[in-house]
Write a protein that binds this DNA or RNA. Structure first.
Lengths: 339, 339
DNA sequence: GGGAGAAATGAAAACATTTGCAATATTATT
DNA sequence: AATAATATTGCAAATGTTTTCATTTCTCCC
C-alpha cells in the first residue's frame, strides 16, 4: 500500500520515461505540451513530491542557506532574521537555522552541520569567529557572508553597519550635551564584536571631550530588560548618580528607564538615557528613546540579496555593503541637570 | 585541483573500501580500531564532510525539522523559536525555518517545500490551517505537530496553551475587580486562532458578569507597540474613556501603557491595563504589567521533544501536551477609578 | 598446526534523481 | 513525396552514500 511515489511511478502512470518526467520539471520547454499535461496529471493523482535530496547529490543547488545566529530571541536578531528569511524565501531559498548561544565552539559544530547538509551558502552574525570556523568555510569554498557588522577587512564579505560608528554617534551626542559624569551598561564584551565596537566608539567619543567612564559605572548586563533594570536600581541605591547612562542597546535602555521611573528620577531632566539599535517600540516609549538607528530590515534584505548573489554567480563579486546608521535624537536625552 | 572529496577519496587515502569508511561513521563498533584511526586521519587530511543528501535518499532521516511560523519578529514567536530550536538541536536535528506572514496560501507552498526537502517532521504554529495543508501532511504521512495552541480535537497532536483559557483568566480578573466599562485591543482575528480564542475567552468572562465590550471600544491593531499606542491615543482623544483596557498580548499592552502615560492617565488609578503572554520585560515594566503567563520556553522545549518522538518512534504515540497558563496579577490592574 | 567460530572487510546492488547522447517522431522545404 | 532540419523522447551512466551478503582474516582451543 505504501507505494513509494517516486519519479518512476509518475513516469509509469504517465506512460513516459523517467527522463521525460525529470525534464518536464527542470526544462519544461524541452517537452511537448501535451506530454507535460499527462505528467502533471499523474503527479497530482499520485501526490508526488520532488525529492531535493536526490537532486542535490547531482551537484544541483540544495536551495538552502545556512543561517547561524547567537540567539533568536533578542529583539534585534528577530527582526534581522525575519527580514533576511523573507527576502531569502522570495529568492527561492529556504533557511536552515541554528543558534549557538554565543558559544564559538558550538558555532563551529553548527557550521559543519550546515556543510553536511550541503547548504548553498552560509551567513554568520558578526565579524569575529573562531579561526576553525573561518578556515573550514574557506577550505570548502562555501559562499559565506558576515551579517550585521561591517568591516572592510573581514575574512568574508559582510553586510552590516559600523558598530563603532554607532557607538561614536551616541557618545558624541552625549558629550555634546555637556555630560561629564557618564555611566554605561553593556553586555559582556568577550566574543561579541558588536558590543565591543560600540563600547569603543562610545568611550572614544567621550575621551574626545576629556570624559572617561569610571570603572564603577561600567555596568555589565546581558541583553535583557530585567538585568538592565536591576543594574540601574543598584546604581541608584549606591546614591552617587551620573548624569547620563549610555546603553549598549535599546533593550538595556528600556530596563534603565523603568528603573529610573521607579526611582522617581526624571528623564531627561535628571538623567539622560540612550540606546543603540532603534528597535520596534523605542520611538513609542514614554519618553521616546534617543538612540542610533541600525536598520535591521535593510540589512536583512540586502544580505539575502548578497548571499544569493554569492551562491549563484561564478566570479568573485564584491557583495559587501556598509549600511549607514543614523542618530535619532528623541526625548530621553538632554543637558545634564543640576547635580 | 577541485578534487571532490567524497567517501571514495577517503577510502582510497585510507586504503580501505568505501563500505568500511561508511561503516566507520555509522557503526564504529563494527570496524577495527586501527582501521578507524586510519580513516579518521584520511578524513582530516582531506577535509571530508559527509553528504547528508546522499544519506537521505536511502530513507535515512535527514535530520531536519521544518518549522513554519507566521513571522519571526514578534517577541513571542522569537522566544518560542529560540527554545524550540535549542531543544531540537540538542536532540541532533536542525531547523528548516520559513515564515508566511499570516498568509495561509504561502503556508501551503512552504509546507510543500519542506516535504521536498524531506524533513523528518513539520511543526506549524496554531491550530487553524488551510485544509490543503493538513491534507497534504496527512497524505504524505509526515509527522506533524501543532505548536503554541492546544486543542483536544485538532487535526494533529498539539503542544501549547489554551488561549481561550488565557483570555478567560484575564477577563475574569478584570471582571472581578469590578470593571464595567472595558475596551479591548486585539489584532485582526481572521486566520489567527490564538487571537480569536483569547478574545472569545475575554468576552465570555466579561459576559458572565453582564459586561459587554461595546463596538466602539473594540480596537484593532496588529501586534506592534506603535499601532497599539496610536489606537489608545485616539481613544483618549475621543474623550469617553473605559476603566480598563484588555490587550491581546503584552506588546499591545506596552503600547497602551505608553499612550496612557503620555496622556497623563494614571495606571492603575484611572485605568487598568492587562496583557497576555508575559513577555520578557513585562514584569519589569513600570508599573509592572498584569498579564497571563504563557510559558513560551516550556512550550518550545516540550514541542521539540514531542516532534522528535513523533519522527523516531513507529507506533502512534500521543504526544500532545496542554501547557497551563497562569495569571500574573501585578501593578497595572486595580479597581475602577472614579469615572 | 588445524579448524571452528567470530571479527573485519569488500563487492555490488540500491536509493531517487539528472543529463549527455542517441534514437525516433514531427515539420518544413522543395 | 523525399529530404533535411528540428523537436521529442528514451537509454544508460552518473551522483555519493548505505547495506546485504559473501569473503577473507583473526583468535582461540585442543
Amino acid at each position: 500500500m505504501k507505494k513509494k511515489t517516486d519519479i518512476i511511478a509518475v513516469a509509469r502512470a504517465a506512460r513516459v520515461s523517467p527522463s521525460t518526467v525529470s525534464r518536464s520539471f527542470n526544462h519544461p520547454d524541452l517537452v511537448k505540451a501535451s506530454t507535460r499535461k499527462k505528467i502533471d496529471a499523474a503527479v497530482r493523482q499520485l501526490g508526488y513530491i520532488r525529492n531535493r535530496a536526490a537532486q542535490t547529490i547531482h551537484g544541483i543547488r540544495s536551495g538552502t542557506i545556512g543561517l547561524i545566529v547567537p540567539t533568536v530571541d533578542q529583539a534585534i536578531f528577530a527582526e534581522l532574521i525575519q527580514s533576511f528569511s523573507e527576502a531569502v524565501e522570495n529568492l527561492g531559498f529556504t533557511i536552515l537555522l541554528a543558534s549557538h548561544g554565543f558559544d564559538l565552539d558550538r558555532e563551529y559544530a553548527l557550521t559543519r552541520k550546515m556543510l553536511e547538509h550541503r547548504v548553498d551558502g552560509v551567513a554568520l552574525i558578526g565579524i569575529e569567529h573562531a579561526q576553525d570556523t573561518l578556515e573550514l568555510l574557506a577550505q570548502q569554498d562555501m559562499p559565506t557572508l558576515l551579517l550585521w557588522s561591517f568591516s572592510p577587512d573581514a575574512a568574508f564579505p559582510c553586510v552590516g553597519a559600523d558598530n563603532y560608528q554607532a557607538g561614536y554617534l551616541i557618545g558624541a551626542h552625549v558629550a555634546a550635551l555637556g555630560h561629564k559624569r557618564v555611566a554605561a551598561i553593556f553586555p559582556p564584551l568577550g566574543g561579541n564584536d558588536r558590543a565591543s565596537l560600540r563600547f569603543a566608539g562610545v568611550t572614544d567619543a567621550l575621551e574626545a571631550v576629556g570624559c572617561t567612564i569610571p570603572e564603577a559605572w561600567r555596568l555589565v548586563a546581558p541583553y535583557s530588560v530585567a538585568t538592565a533594570k536591576s543594574a540601574v536600581e543598584a546604581l541608584i541605591a549606591e546614591g552617587d548618580l551620573p548624569t547620563a547612562i549610555v546603553c549598549g542597546n535599546d533593550v538595556l535602555a528600556w530596563g534603565a528607564l523603568h528603573a529610573l521611573m521607579r526611582g522617581g528620577i526624571a528623564v531627561p531632566g535628571q538623567m539622560t538615557v540612550t540606546g543603540i539599535g532603534d528597535f520596534n517600540g523605542s520611538k513609542e516609549f514614554e519618553p521616546s528613546l534617543t538612540t542610533v538607528r541600525i536598520p535591521a530590515r535593510t540589512i536583512g534584505a540586502k544580505a539575502a540579496e548578497a548571499i544569493v548573489r554569492l551562491t549563484t554567480s561564478e566570479e568573485e563579486v564584491d557583495t559587501g555593503a556598509l549600511i549607514p546608521t543614523e542618530i535619532m535624537v528623541r526625548g530621553t536625552s538632554g543637558p545634564p541637570g543640576k547635580a
